[in-house]
Amino acid sequence: MSHALTDTRLSVLSDADRLPAVASVAVIVAVAVTKWDARRRTRKHLTKLPPHLLSDIGLDAMTAQQEAAKPFWRD
């Protein structure tokens, strides 16, 4: 189980009025780290999927490898 904040909770924090400057920066960092972690985990799992499951999500092995090779900070 991940302890990362969900997108819903992060959007609530981001939309809060008058957060102190340090809190605003902390929210921005938390959002970035959460997205990076999700990308890292997703790409790691892509490398382990068998071909029949890749085809279920509309990917071939080459496309999955290209996606998995991307660094976590890149969309």
Rank of each mutant, 00 (worst) to 15 (best):
A38I: 08
A68P: 09
R43F: 00
V25N: 07
P71Q: 07
M62R: 14
V29H: 07
S14A: 13
V31W: 00
A32S: 10
P50I: 07
T42W: 02
S55C: 04
A61I: 05
R18G: 12
S24M: 05
D17E: 07
R18P: 04
Q66S: 04
V25A: 14
T6Q: 08
W36L: 13
A23S: 08
A38W: 01
W36I: 12
D37G: 12
D37P: 00
S24Y: 02
A4E: 13
D17M: 04
P20A: 13
R74T: 03
S55L: 01
R39P: 07
P71T: 11
A30W: 04
Q65A: 15
A61W: 04
T34R: 08
A68C: 00
V22K: 15
K48E: 10
R40L: 01
L19K: 12
P51R: 04
A64Q: 05
H45L: 15
G58M: 02
T8P: 00
D17F: 06
S2I: 12
T63V: 02
A64F: 03
M62L: 10
I28D: 15
D56W: 03
V22E: 15
P51K: 00
A68V: 03
D37L: 11
K70M: 11
R41T: 13
L53E: 03
K35H: 12
T47E: 05
G58N: 01
R9W: 02
K70I: 07
A23R: 11
D56K: 15
S2T: 15
M62W: 06
L13V: 03
H52Q: 10
A38T: 12
P50Q: 11
R43V: 08
G58A: 02
D56H: 10
L54W: 01
L13D: 05
A30D: 06
R18Q: 09
A4W: 10
A64K: 04
V25E: 09
V27F: 01
S24E: 06
I57A: 02
K70L: 14
A69R: 13
R43G: 06
L49A: 00
H3R: 11
A68F: 05
V27I: 06
L54M: 01
P51V: 05
T34A: 05
D7V: 07
R18V: 09
D15Y: 06
R18L: 07
K44N: 11
L49D: 00
V12E: 10
A69Y: 00
R9A: 01
K70A: 08
D7K: 10
V33S: 06
P51I: 02
W73N: 07
H52E: 09
A32L: 12
S11E: 15
R43T: 09
R39D: 01
M1G: 14
D7G: 14
A16S: 09
S2A: 09
K44C: 08
E67H: 13
A23H: 07
T63C: 02
V27A: 01
T42Y: 05
D56E: 10
S2N: 10
S24W: 05
V31F: 05
A21G: 07
M62C: 01
K35S: 10
T34K: 02
A16D: 03
T8W: 09
Q65R: 15
L10Q: 01
T42M: 07
L53Y: 03
V12F: 07
A4V: 12
H3C: 04
R9T: 00
T34Y: 02
T6L: 06
T63K: 02
T34I: 03
H45Y: 11
A68D: 02
P20K: 11
L10P: 04
T34M: 04
